[in-house]
Nucleic acid binder design. Structure first.
Length: 428
DNA sequence: TCTGGGGTCCTAGGACCC
DNA sequence: TCTGGGGTCCTAGGACCC
């Protein structure tokens, strides 16, 4: 059997850990730039605050009911995520834990000491909470897709289920599928859900499970759809990842601007900064990039109240030799900005995407590499180390600028309690 | 006035090769 | 005058995920 373990309202739970007075009170966490709501507690949900909804639209409710609001604090969430995953690895063994996202992991589950799957999962849930303070829900089933179905039910009925749902018989599986709207199935997004309802009268996960694979091949994204049907019918095809996917295949750094910008200088500063950040991530996994693409998003006048993104203008350049040096990548990125920038337009976002990643061969100490390349790598390592130890961006390239008109908003960020000495939680 | 960021996988279509 | 078939690689774009 497989299981998925999922932290409840993860970002909010992290904030509550250091603000216990917020237990049982409504809390929300905002996306970067304080734009959207990306995490909310059950209490906030009950007030009618919607997931991924824009902050400014929820603001009246937030103010009326005194909902505590945080800007996102990824240092904190990343650290607590690691603790949860480590707890799982200690209990189940590294091999049986596949980290799927910051707040989710798939588990290969065996019954321990003749305990039932339910008791085993319950035990895991209790230990994780004891060790980390983070509450989790667990769904157990024969396939990953069914685990997600079980997990949804566990979260929806926290008290009745004790946050653990096990689907181990045909009857239980069918009942669960019938209780799950098709748009909540893992792998069915907005587009497919709409199509399924309108054209095929498919409303529940159960309806979908009765569709043929041939039909799914044609109408549900080819092989992806076929896999989905199989998984819904208890036939495991999405296997546990053999090894942890630690090396990214693409690295991006993209941001909304705090306010719209219109000068090429501001865009260039932003793009240089994002490129540095992306290059840091690149070096952290010892990769080098062969392709760099840059895009900007224009601000369009909103029409009849409907939200819509502006136009995205992008261009990419394939480098003759892969590199991980910030200065080299920045130089190329800035030439792309020259190409895609149009005077007179307003811009609200820019981004840098590094792809075509290959192992970096200029790692320090490699005697087969010319010394001058090693020097470059050592310079980069030094900058990375200083920035890590002191604070972000204390050393940066001049092209990143100093005035930073475009910098995003994070007005309500909590302290980085667990990763910065000067922000550590104090008990008095 | 104000709507995130960072990923993955798949497909179609074009260029190119023998 | 008559001009194939099969394969690979790359890119752009679309769907999805959290």
């Amino acid at each position: 059997m497989k299981a998925i373990i999922d932290c409840n309202s993860f970002y909010c739970s992290c904030e509550r850990l250091f603000r216990p007075e917020l237990d049982n009170k409504p809390v929300v966490v905002l996306s970067n730039n304080d734009g959207c709501i990306v995490s909310r507690t059950d209490e906030a949900k009950l007030l009618g605050i919607v997931m991924a909804g824009p902050y400014f639209m929820a603001k009246p409710i937030i103010e009326k009911y005194g909902v505590t609001t945080f800007s996102s604090n990824y240092n904190l969430y990343g650290d607590l995520s690691w603790r949860v995953m480590e707890a799982l690895r200690i209990m189940l063994g590294k091999k049986n834990v596949e980290v799927y996202s910051v707040d989710e992991a798939f588990l290969e589950l065996k019954e321990i000491d003749n305990k039932s799957f339910f008791d085993t999962a319950l035990h895991i849930r209790q230990v994780v909470e004891l060790w980390t303070g983070i509450k989790v829900s667990i769904g157990v089933a024969p396939t990953k897709v069914l685990c997600k179905v079980a997990n949804h039910l566990a979260k929806k009925h926290k008290i009745a289920t004790q946050c653990v749902v096990v689907l181990d018989t045909v009857e239980k599986i069918n009942k669960a599928l019938q209780a799950t709207p098709v748009n909540e199935v893992w792998g069915v997004g907005r587009q497919y859900a709409e199509k399924l309802k309108e054209m095929n009268a498919v409303y529940t996960a159960y309806d979908l499970s009765k569709k043929s694979e041939v039909w799914a091949q044609k109408n549900l994204g080819g092989v992806v759809g076929v896999r989905l049907i199989k998984e819904l019918n208890s036939q495991p095809v999405i296997e546990m990842a053999k090894k942890q996917l630690t090396e990214k295949k693409m690295i991006a750094c993209t941001r909304m601007f705090g306010k719209n910008v219109h000068t090429i200088e501001d865009i260039k500063q932003a793009v240089a900064t994002y490129t540095s950040r992306a290059a840091e991530k690149l070096r952290r996994q010892n990769s080098a990039a062969t392709t760099i693409s840059v895009f900007v998003l224009t601000k369009e006048p909103s029409n009849n109240g409907h939200f819509r993104h502006g136009n995205s203008i992008s261009h990419c350049i394939v480098l003759p030799i892969a590199t991980c040096a910030s200065n080299e990548l920045i130089k190329v990125a800035l030439t792309i900005v020259d190409k895609i920038f149009t005077k007179g337009k307003l811009y609200k976002k820019a981004g840098v995407i590094l792809s075509g990643l290959v192992p970096d061969k200029t790692i320090q100490g490699n005697i087969f590499v010319a010394e001058k390349n090693n020097n470059k790598r050592m310079l980069m390592n030094t900058i990375d180390n200083i920035n890590f130890a002191m604070r972000n961006d204390i050393v940066k390239f001049a092209s990143s600028g100093t005035n930073r008109n475009w910098k995003m908003r994070t007005e309500m960020r909590s302290p980085r309690y667990s990763t910065r000495w000067d922000e550590m939680y104090e008990v008095s």
